[in-house]
Design a protein around this nucleic acid. Structure first.
Lengths: 352, 352
DNA sequence: TTTAGCACTCGCAAAGGAAGAGTGCTAGTT
DNA sequence: AACTAGCACTCTTCCTTTGCGAGTGCTAAA
C-alpha cells in the first residue's frame, strides 16, 4: 500500500538524469552519482527508494544486484516522449548538411549523399529510401529493336527518372516501325499518369479495334507489354553500417550478424520503413518496439521526406538504444526537410 | 650443417596433410595427430624434426611454445601451388549454378545472381564486378528537354545497356529541335565506338563549320556535351558478407570492421580486382599477399570472366585463409565460365 | 518524509594451482 | 645415418580462491 506508484515530478526528474547519464557514460548508474548529478539535493538512500519504485513500474532495471540501474525500453520511451530537451544542431553540422544537400544540377546521387551525411555526422548508420511518387507521369517512351522479337523499352517519368526493360513481342518489328509506335504513344499519352495510360491502353485493346489502322494497333500492343508490370522497385541506400560495429552493446551474440543480414535482405527493413512513411514528422523505434528481432538492440530515428508536400520517402539513423536522442531527433528532422527541398524540381534550378 | 633444408618428398607430404588438417579442424596440429593422420608411418618425434625444418623455412609456425603448427602464408602458397588435389564440384552445386546462371531473357540481375550463388554455395562472401567492355559502341542516342537549358541525354550502348545523364546547353532547345539533333547523330554515328564518335565530333567542331547548316551544328555541339565525360563506372556486387562474421579468425581486433569498410568504400577492392582482370584463369591471394591491410586475414580466389573471348569482368570468393581451396578453386573457375556463357549475346536467345 | 548506517550480494580482477598438450633435446635403437 | 623413446620443460586453459569495490535493501533514527 504505502508506496504511491505514481510518477511524480521528482521521479521523472530522476529518470531523466538517469537516462542522460547512462547515455553519456554507458554504465549502470547508481544512487550516489544520481544524488550528486541531479539538481534536487537528495541523499543516495532517498534515491534508492525512488529507484525501487521506478523498477516496479518497469522503467529501469538492474543488470545484477549490485550494479546501478539502466533504463528499460519503457524508460527510454517516457524519456523521449516527455522529458527530452532538444539540442539545436551544431552550426558546423548544419553547414555540412547545406553544403551536401544543396540543389545541384546533378541530382543523381543526392540520396547517397544524404545517407552518407547522416552516417558521418551522427557516427551511426544512415539510411534513405529512394523517393517514390504515388502517381508517376509518363514523359517520354522509346522502343529499340534488339535481336529477334526482343525490344528494349526506355521510358522517362516525372522529371528525369529513366527506366528501361526488355519485352518480348509477338512478331519482329523494324526500327522504323518501333519509332512510329513510340511517336504515336508519346503524342497521345505523354503527360498522363502511368496508371491512366495502362488503363487506357487496355481499354483500347478490348474495345474498338477496327477504328485504328495497323500501325496504331501495333503501338498499342507494344505499349501494353511495356507497361504491364508495375515495377515498384522499393530500395534504400545505407551508409556507415560499419560505424555500428564499434558499439559494444550491439556486438554481443550474433546480434550484429542478424542486423547486417537484415540490411542485405532489405525486405524486412523496407517493411519497417514503409510504416514510417505513413506518419508525419519524426518517428522513433526503441529496441524491440520495431517488432523486428534484428533491431532488438537498436534504436531507429526516422522521418519521412516530401517533394512539394507529397511524401515520397523516408530517411533515418540507426544506432544503439543508448544514443543521444536530444541531438539525433532534430538532426533527422532537419535533414529530411533539406533533402525534400533539394529534390523539389521547382527550386532545383534557380535560374542564376 | 647437419639438416638438409631441402624440401624433399616427405616434408612436402607432411606439409600437405598438415594444411589439410588445419583447414578442416581449425586448430594448430601437433606431431601426434600428424603421425597418425599421414600415410607414412613415422613417430611423432620424427615428425617434430621435420616440423622444425619446415618452421626454419618459414612454411609453418607455432602460435606458442606448446601448440601444434599452423601454416604460414608461404606454407599455404606451396600448398595451393603444388600440393593441391582438386575436388570436382558436387553435382547439386553444379545444378544450382546451371539453374541460376542459365541465359534468360531477363539478364538484368544475372550479376547479382552469380554473386549470391558464389556466397551461398561456398558459405563465404561472393563478389562479381559489373561487366565492362573495352570498346563501347553507340547504338542510339536521345535528347529530352528538361527545365530551362537542361537536357536529359539517354544513350544505349552495346546490346542493351542504357545510360543517362543531364547536361547544360548554351541556349534553350525545343523538343523538336532536340529530336532532330538526335536523329542527325544517330544517322551518322550509330554503330561506331563511343571513343570514335567523341573524336569525330571534336574534329567537326574544330574544322569546317561552314559546311554544315545550323541544325547540324547544334546537334554536334549537344553531342559533344553529352559524350565529353567518359563515365567509366566500375562497380561490383557483393553477397553474403555476413557469412564472414561467423569466422572467428576474422573476428579478432577491428579486423572485420576494416574489411567491411573496404567493402563499402569499394575503391580499394576495385583496385585489387582490376589486377585480377589482367591474369588469365583463376588467381589466388592468400592473406597479406593482396597488399591490402583489410584483407590481411582473408584469402581471395578470383577468376576473370569473358563475353565471346573478351575479358569483361572478375568474380570471386572471399573467405578466411583457412578455406577449402581444393573445392573453391574449381568452383570459382566453373562459375566464371558459366557466367561468361550466360552473358554471351550470341547464345543468349536460342530462338526456340 | 528523509537520512544515516549497516549487512549483504554480486561482479570483476588478480593470483594460484592442476591438467593437458606439445615441444626440444638427448640418448639409445635399428 | 635415420628413426624413435623418453623426459624435462613451456605454455595455454580452466577452475578456484580471494579480496575489493560498488551498490543495494532494510531498519532505525532525525
Amino acid at each position: 500500500m504505502a508506496h504511491t506508484h505514481i510518477l511524480n515530478e521528482r521521479s521523472l526528474q530522476l529518470l531523466k538524469t538517469l537516462v542522460e547519464r547512462y547515455i553519456s557514460d554507458g554504465q549502470p548508474v547508481g544512487s550516489r552519482v544520481l544524488s550528486k548529478g541531479s539538481e534536487l539535493n537528495l541523499s543516495p538512500a532517498t534515491i534508492r527508494n525512488v529507484m525501487a519504485d521506478l523498477e516496479d513500474m518497469g522503467l529501469v532495471h538492474s543488470p545484477h544486484t549490485s550494479a546501478g540501474r539502466i533504463p528499460t525500453v519503457s524508460g527510454y520511451r517516457i524519456f523521449v516522449d516527455t522529458l527530452l530537451t532538444f539540442k539545436p544542431l551544431e552550426s558546423k553540422d548544419l553547414f555540412r548538411l547545406h553544403e551536401g544537400l544543396s540543389a545541384k544540377e546533378d541530382n543523381s546521387d543526392i540520396i547517397g549523399a544524404a545517407s552518407r551525411l547522416l552516417a558521418e555526422l551522427t557516427q551511426m548508420a544512415g539510411i534513405v529510401t529512394l523517393p517514390r511518387r504515388e502517381t508517376v507521369y509518363l514523359r517520354h517512351i522509346e522502343f529499340l529493336p534488339l535481336s529477334n522479337t526482343r525490344v528494349l523499352v526506355i521510358f522517362v517519368t516525372n522529371e528525369q527518372e529513366v527506366h528501361n526493360k526488355i519485352i518480348q513481342t509477338d512478331k519482329k518489328f523494324s526500327a522504323s516501325e518501333l519509332q512510329q509506335a513510340a511517336n504515336f504513344i508519346n503524342s497521345i499519352y505523354a503527360g498522363r499518369s502511368l496508371q491512366a495510360v495502362r488503363e487506357a491502353v487496355l481499354k483500347e485493346l478490348k474495345e474498338d479495334q477496327q477504328r485504328m489502322n495497323k500501325g496504331m494497333m501495333d503501338a498499342i500492343k507494344i505499349a501494353q507489354l511495356a507497361l504491364e508490370t508495375t515495377d515498384k522497385k522499393e530500395d534504400y541506400v545505407l551508409a556507415g553500417e560499419t560505424n555500428l560495429m564499434g558499439f559494444s552493446e550491439l556486438a554481443g551474440r550474433d546480434n550484429l550478424k542478424k542486423l547486417f543480414e537484415a540490411f542485405s535482405q532489405k525486405q524486412s527493413v523496407l517493411h519497417l520503413l514503409d510504416h514510417c512513411m505513413k506518419a508525419e514528422g519524426v518517428q522513433i523505434f526503441i529496441g524491440e518496439e520495431s517488432g523486428y528481432q534484428a533491431f532488438d538492440q537498436c534504436s531507429l530515428v526516422t522521418s519521412s521526406y516530401s517533394i512539394s508536400d507529397e511524401v515520397v520517402g523516408v530517411l533515418g539513423v540507426i544506432g544503439p538504444t543508448r544514443m543521444a536522442y536530444e541531438k539525433i531527433i532534430p538532426f533527422v528532422d532537419i535533414t529530411a526537410k533539406l533533402l525534400g527541398a533539394a529534390l523539389n524540381p521547382k527550386t532545383a534550378t534557380p535560374s542564376s
